[in-house]
Design a protein around this nucleic acid. Sequence first.
DNA 1: CGGCAGATTGAGACTAATCAAGAGGAGTGG
DNA 2: CCACTCCTCTTGATTAGTCTCAATCTGCCG
Lengths: 289, 289
Amino acid sequence: MSFAAHALKSASEICVSCAARNHGFCGMLDGSCLGLIAGRSQPAHYKRSAEILLQGEETDRIGIVRSGLVKVVLLTEDGDHQVLQVLKPRQIVGDPCKTWNAFSWEAATAADICWIQRPTLNLIMKDHPQVYRAYLDVIARQLEEHRLWAASMRGRNTVQRIAFWIFQQVPDIRDGGAATIHIALTRRDLASLLDMTVETLCRGLYQLSDRDAIRLVTPETIEVLNNIKLRLLARCGDGRVSNVLKRPDPAVTTDNPFCISISSAHAGGETHVARLRSVASDLGRVGRN
Amino acid sequence: MSFAAHALKSASEICVSCAARNHGFCGMLDGSCLGLIAGRSQPAHYKRSAEILLQGEETDRIGIVRSGLVKVVLLTEDGDHQVLQVLKPRQIVGDPCKTWNAFSWEAATAADICWIQRPTLNLIMKDHPQVYRAYLDVIARQLEEHRLWAASMRGRNTVQRIAFWIFQQVPDIRDGGAATIHIALTRRDLASLLDMTVETLCRGLYQLSDRDAIRLVTPETIEVLNNIKLRLLARCGDGRVSNVLKRPDPAVTTDNPFCISISSAHAGGETHVARLRSVASDLGRVGRN
DNA sequence: CGGCAGATTGAGACTAATCAAGAGGAGTGG
DNA sequence: CCACTCCTCTTGATTAGTCTCAATCTGCCG
């Protein structure tokens, strides 16, 4: 009992500083429930490129990313490893329902994982259905995120994909200002995530640099010089983008039409799509079919 | 009460013939729980290419595919349709946790959907936590499936992707035998799913036909003449990736399993690539030649 | 200092998109 | 019945984009 109390205490102390404490899975649980789980969870630290879960192995625990980045990789028969997704803090490592892993999970950076034994979680779940709810919510978000990511990679050439990724990394939404971002992933991992070769990634970065959208400070550090230009490069054909950028269009610079989120893409019906299409044609978007 | 009893009865009758009855979401529920849900569900029929859920709209219901194929599409700003995934019977339509839809769901073929109002489901869930469990399981499977699909599309050229897709459609695993499969999707949808243009899809199909792997009976019907050749053209291993990796390899289970993924891919690069290349030549590259 | 792994740059080959056009089928209206 | 349009499927020629192979450069560690 004293052990349990001690465990509970230490875990709670850990939870205080945890990024996932008030958000995601843990954030959806109430105090008593969180205490139960916290008392039975085991934090673990992983160095960069350490294996967290190995594809094909059996595991009876699931984890929550506390800090760092975790990549979901598929090991193919030819020994290649494909980065499918990069998980950020608060997201879940491992497959909730399967005993064996369909993928490998590796630390993309130094990372902390908070582990919970699956049987323990199942026991808690019996008394606290809200755990299911929290779990479902996080997994559903990861599914949506992955679908959106897959969609983002489509219909974009390599430079656009790179620009899009950088654009997503920019912490603040303020346009025009300069932001310094740190590329935590290696070139190899980033290239695999963006589905291209390292060489192409490298060339693409320098293309963005040549166009004064970003500045390559060090191989791991880039500075976003022009966020608007970056965003345009992320979604438009390179040919006519420069033309658009040369003539400052107030409609584009201030109230950028690409700010329109996907959710509202169909709200306006015909006229909305028509308007978007006209904008797209202005920018020379290379669409398919 | 009599109405409820009637609804329960009719729904149960529908359930009897439902493909999802004993599998997936419904299959994980026990009798009483299933009865509760069945009594409150509404079946609906959709014609091919009918909108099931519209991207950006709000919905308070989720659906289960009873029959037919449902495509998850993302409508881009330029009015393009991107097919992200194709859902088969027993899978779930709609986002479980969000009130607005991040994607559109459309009937890829004539399809039947079994709808459940979200508030109703939430009420049932309070008393029957197993519903959460079932729900989580199905969503997790869809996430895994989508991740696997994304991985399958990578590192394969267009002909390999087409061959891979056809190979997945073959109902039986019997090698060597001829099987006739029906392409339920339109060329446009299939091309979008495989991330290529319709022209490329068409050319690829005829390349497979020229190599006597398949025979194009009608535009919608193809006959698999040589399943082994098809699999080789798809660049599939003898088994699934997981099966290969499931075998306990002492080199893998040591403290540095990473050596087989990254290190060997680079350090032993020459010989490894050379070996793969020889295999590839055995399989017959689908180049122009 | 040399080895080593990662990052960068260059030249060439080749895949797949684009543009263009023809063939076939389904529906419509005269 | 035909002509007509519209759409899907198909094939051809061209070109841009990306991968491959190769070499160079960098920082890091023993």
